[in-house]
């Protein structure tokens, strides 16, 4: 499947994309932002690919990627370094912070691929694909709502799932799980007021990444 797709992509695109197989033989194509719309148009129109179904668009924020609360990489003579908070910035693993994944499906050829476009806080703009797939409309609004990615050329890029007048982008990793504000009825002022959230977040189970070399083959 990978070779089949590789052969069908013309040389004009090959410089700007990377095709690879990821877990369970899924095909992932990373596309550069400036070629993205042309590439989408090509894979949609080409009869041998014909990826005419856009199934899903989702954003990913790679800010905390690979960061755990406890670092247990070093098993030293004094034991595991439990309870120690690491300063290592694993997010360097991903060169850019945000990623937008497009899951495409070819109804006639029966295969799926994933397109990924990376972007950063400095330039949150990505070309919109609403002109190619109408279904992208709400998906892109959702990614904008949750991550703040701006889709250029979208007909109506407004928030969709969060509340009217919501501030911030809740699925970014630096957005607190408890939210930023809480509202309550103030008896003195006789109206509903909004103030900073008073909830303290309790972490029951820390996030753990353990490099287990025992089963390494």
């Amino acid at each position: 499947m990978l070779d089949y797709i590789k052969n069908l992509i013309p040389a004009t695109f090959t410089k700007h994309i990377t095709i690879k197989k990821t877990v369970a033989d899924e095909i992932t194509i990373d596309v550069e932002k400036n070629m993205f719309l042309d590439f989408c148009e090509y894979i949609k129109q080409n009869d041998n690919l014909k990826l005419d179904g856009l199934v899903d668009i989702s954003g990913v924020d790679y800010l905390d990627y690979g960061k755990s609360y406890w670092e247990t990489i070093d098993a030293t003579i004094s034991g595991f370094s439990r309870g120690h908070k690491s300063d290592i910035n694993y997010s360097l693993y991903m060169k850019k912070r945000f990623c937008v994944s497009y899951h495409l499906l070819s109804y006639s050829n029966n295969f799926r691929i994933r397109l990924r476009v990376f972007t950063d806080l400095k330039d949150m703009c990505i070309p919109s694909v609403v002109s190619l797939w109408s279904t992208a409309n709400w998906h892109e609004r959702e990614v904008y709502d949750f991550f703040g990615v701006i889709f250029l050329g979208h007909p109506n890029l407004i928030r969709i799932l969060t509340d009217y007048g919501f501030e911030g982008h809740p699925l970014r990793k630096d957005f607190p799980l408890t939210g930023k504000y809480e509202i309550r009825y103030d008896e003195n002022k006789e109206k509903i007021i909004r103030e900073a959230s008073s909830i303290k977040r309790i972490i029951n189970t820390p996030k753990i990444i353990r490099k287990d070399f025992r089963y390494k083959n």
Binding site: D56, S58, V60, D61, S68, H103, T205, K207, I208, I209
Partner: peptide, 18 residues
């Protein structure tokens, strides 16, 4: 559809429901 991104930890890094 479920789209899971895992960074090798005990919690999913990102879960997206289609």
């Amino acid at each position: 559809g479920i789209y899971i991104v895992s960074d090798g930890s005990n919690k999913p890094y990102r879960v997206k429901m289609r």
